[in-house]
Simulated scan of single mutants.
Amino acid sequence: MSIGDGIRRNIAQVEPSERASLRDAFIELNRRFYPGTRTDGVPGDVSFWFKQDEIHQSTHVHGGPEFVPWHRIIVNGIESLIRDINPALSLHYWDWTQDPRGIPSSNMGSGMAGNLNLFTPDFMGYGGPTSAPIGEPWLSAKYYDPTAALHRDATGNPADPPKIVRRFVVGAPLTVDVDNDIVNAPNYPVFRYLLEQAHNMMHGFVSMGGSHISFRDPFVFLLHSNVDRLFSRWQTDPMHPERLDPATIYGTESGEAELNGNVEPWSTGHSFDPFGDEHFTRPWCAPENLGEPFSYKHANVVSPPAYDTNLTAPLVG
Rank of each mutant, 00 (worst) to 15 (best):
P293V: 05
I73L: 09
P293S: 01
W266S: 03
L259S: 00
V316P: 00
M201D: 14
G210N: 07
V301M: 09
W266P: 01
S2Y: 13
L194Y: 10
K163F: 14
E28H: 04
G102D: 14
T268I: 11
F231T: 03
E18L: 01
G210L: 13
N187R: 06
P189S: 05
F205T: 09
I182N: 00
E66W: 11
Y307N: 02
D24L: 03
H199F: 13
S225F: 10
V169P: 00
S254W: 07
P265F: 08
V165P: 00
F221N: 02
R167V: 10
E242W: 12
E15A: 13
L116D: 00
P189N: 01
N300W: 13
D308Y: 10
K297W: 12
Y296A: 09
A247T: 06
A286N: 12
W49Y: 11
A247S: 09
P189G: 00
R23E: 04
Y250K: 03
N180H: 06
Y144Q: 08
G209S: 04
R19A: 05
L259W: 14
W234Y: 06
R166E: 10
N200H: 13
N184R: 15
N184S: 14
Y143V: 00
G64F: 13
S105R: 14
G209F: 01
G261V: 05
E256M: 07
W284A: 02
M112L: 13
V42Q: 07
L81P: 01
R31A: 10
R38Y: 10
P100F: 09
V220Q: 06
S80Y: 10
E264H: 04
R152C: 11
A88W: 12
M201K: 14
S105N: 15
